[in-house]
Amino acid sequence: MRKQRPEGGGRSRRRFLRATGVAGAAGLAGCLRGWSPAGATGDDAGEESPTVAVLSAGSLQHALERGLEPAVDVPVRIESHGSATVARLIDEGQRDPDIVTVADTALFERPLSPPWYSVFTSNAVVLAYNPDTAGGRRVAGASPERWYEPLVEREVRLGRTDPDQDPLGYRTLFALELASRYYDDAPDLRERIPRREQIYPETGLLSRFETGSIDAAFAYRNMAVERDYEYVALPDEIDLGDPGYDDGWYSTVSYELPSGQVVRGGPIEYASTIRRMSDAARSVFAVHTTGSYLAESGFVGSDRFPRYEGAVPDEVRRATDGSNGSRSNRPPTERAPGDAVSEITVLI
């Protein structure tokens, strides 16, 4: 089934930013990294902790380091995991964050089941490649409708993430299955392409280009844009980035997690919630879910975001409605009058 021709050629951060009219986020200071164990809420359990712990999807790591940290008025420390691991760490009591963010709202249906959450941005699956390697050049030289052939013929050292650990892993399998249906005579790509030795952690996937371990990788578009890597833009019918293809198309593919939970294909949506309410948590949450750093990092925004599900507290709505990403436009050293300084720990 071919519904439209895919976009041809490689893309990079420069081309993406020119197309969207978004300036880069260069020059922003990186943030400290760290984590807080379960139940760590400060020296005095009877007082509000000055530290807000946020556990979040690994594909947000670069954006939070370069964009969120300089946009808030507090120090930020960062750790990252695949979203399925994030959900498992909380469900098993290994982490007890104030804020949690995942790359698939299905993980908020089970196992986390928060009373409310904000859906705040989207993404798309792409095939990133290194044009300086033989395998990468094979990807770049393939016909726009035959990008998968070098992968099937095993002429490319391919990287992907573990579908049992994060949504990018199972979305890669979804994209391959949809591609098999989309192109007229493509083989069963979900069966032919994946091999176990291709799997790497999400947070270090594209760094394998620098080490020479891989020539190409299935990644989120923001991951390629942030690092200025070339990528093949897949058709909307394949990249899981267009809500218009949800019912009857994206939703026809699925994957069973080790827990037995079956996740189905759908448009990529990131969601976040505050688990322990505080002024500091609301402040960080507002910039995290509405800041312009998301567009600068290649994430996709639209009039649909932010969208709330469940019984969202009024004070959260007020905080995010009043933010509108404006704080992200302040220079990192500038503070608004009366801004309080607290320590924020972000676990990604």
Rank of each mutant, 00 (worst) to 15 (best):
D242E: 06
L294I: 12
Q94V: 13
F209H: 02
Q198R: 00
D314S: 15
D132V: 10
D239C: 05
R221K: 09
T211E: 09
R13W: 11
V253P: 01
G67S: 00
R304T: 12
R11P: 08
E210R: 15
T333F: 15
E230Q: 13
R335T: 13
R18L: 14
A23D: 14
E256N: 08
S80D: 08
V125G: 00
I268N: 05
H81D: 09
S207V: 13
P235Q: 10
R195Y: 13
W147P: 01
N130L: 08
P70F: 04
E237N: 07
L17P: 08
P235N: 10
F285A: 07
L347G: 10
G27V: 08
L17K: 12
D321C: 15
S328R: 07
V263R: 00
H62W: 14
A295L: 13
E69I: 11
A336D: 09
D164G: 08
P70Q: 08
P258T: 11
S36H: 03
P37V: 05
R66M: 12
G241S: 09
E153A: 14
S180M: 03
R160M: 13
A340D: 15
E269Q: 12
G93W: 01
Q4N: 14
V232S: 04
D246T: 07
G310C: 06
R192N: 08
T85M: 10
E109V: 13
Q94L: 15
A233E: 13
G67T: 01
E191W: 11
M1K: 13
A53N: 00
G9Q: 12
R2A: 07
A124P: 02
V262Q: 06
Y250G: 03
D239T: 04
E79I: 04
R2K: 08
E315S: 12
T20M: 15
R221C: 03
T203S: 06
A319C: 14
A84K: 09
V156C: 06
I90S: 03
G169D: 02
T121E: 05
D91P: 01
G338R: 11
V102C: 03
Y231K: 07
A57V: 05
R138Q: 06
P331A: 09
D166I: 01
A63P: 00
E269G: 07
G141Q: 06
G136N: 07
A19W: 14
G58S: 11
P313G: 10
L178A: 06
V52L: 05
Y170S: 12
G169E: 01
Y293P: 01
Y148E: 02
I268H: 04
I344E: 00
I348L: 13
A233F: 10
P267F: 09
S292I: 06
V125I: 12
A319P: 13
V126H: 05
D228P: 03
Y200C: 09
T161K: 02
T289N: 08
D162Q: 11
P97W: 02
G260K: 08
R330H: 13
